[in-house]
Design a protein around this nucleic acid. Structure first.
Lengths: 164, 164
DNA sequence: CTTGGAATGTCAACAAGGCTGACGTACTGT
DNA sequence: ACAGTACGTCAGCCTTGTTGACATTCCAAG
């Protein structure tokens, strides 16, 4: 716990932080660019991608659960879900224990789209990971996790646990 | 250049990549959360933040230049600039050599807002950096840079060079 | 010198996707 | 019986992206 100074703190200078901020901005654009192109052709948007992604991760999730993960209002999510259900990509089943709940599942068609989007996004991620190497990836993940809001970190970690 | 396999490639599995994707999603939300709160009270949006940020980085930049950095249409940018100019945060000077161009500068008031937003965002960034440590930060930056589109990487690197 | 095209920036109108508020329906648990 | 919960929906607003049309300015070819 000795007081570090000078060179040791180079990575905490305002200039270094500014570069980090800009890197985050440009990288996020790259991160979403490939799925966005695919979605455009289907006249879907990023919102549809997010819904499909998290339904795929947690099949049978309820609307309320999805809401808290995505951090949007139910009206906003509902608009997206409505089109996905109408287009046969998502199935909404009434809960067996609690009939108020709707459990969400991807149909075969939905899984196909999810895979297509996921493949595109993973390809870029894989290329970046490969280029940077395993140590860099570990650091990348550490910084990202430290950057999340506390409640989002809970959601993030919950998704990493084995499915029930 | 030996063929790596098994444990060596753990960080390139689909599951690892999926976690990286989700980390990116949640982290970006945290990344923008603090400035968003400030902007909300002034009834500005994220677009205003981006404009102010990059005008501050490159004072005297033209609209066209800003366009290619931000990656939006000139009409979209113009709407944001119009309100910023009307509110006296940005000054638009007709070019001396080429009168078609407008050179953009922050006023004192604009600089004050930029500083306020920047401070909030840097505070989170600094906390995350400190928590993760210098090695992690280096890795973080490497992966982000590898994740950008090639043309955005050019913009990003141009911004890191000494100002002319 | 004129004139046509390229570059630059502005105005108008539209769409996606956030948001709030209000309300209806179906179900649960006390 | 009834308060509270989960979900869906309608209406309306805002931000921020898009295209299309247009004005101004510059430059280069004739």
């Amino acid at each position: 716990m000795a007081e570090p100074s000078g060179e040791q703190l180079l990575y905490l200078t305002d200039e270094q932080l500014r570069q980090g901020i800009e890197a985050m901005f440009f990288a996020y654009r790259g991160f979403t660019a490939d799925p966005d192109r695919i979605l455009d052709e289907l006249s879907y948007g990023r919102a549809h991608h997010r819904a499909v992604h998290f339904i795929n991760c947690a099949p049978g999730t309820t609307v309320n659960n999805l809401l808290s993960i995505l951090g949007v209002t139910k009206q906003s999510l509902n608009r997206v879900l409505r089109t996905l259900i109408a287009d046969g990509l998502v199935e909404s089943r009434v809960g067996r224990l609690d009939k108020r709940e709707r459990h969400l599942y991807l149909t075969e068609e939905g899984k196909a789209l999810e895979a297509q989007l996921s493949d595109a996004q993973r390809a870029r991620m894989r290329a970046a990971y490969r280029k940077a190497g395993p140590e860099a990836v570990a650091g990348f993940r550490q910084v990202l996790e430290a950057m999340m809001d506390a409640d989002m970190r809970r959601n993030y970690r919950a998704l990493r646990e084995p499915r029930t």
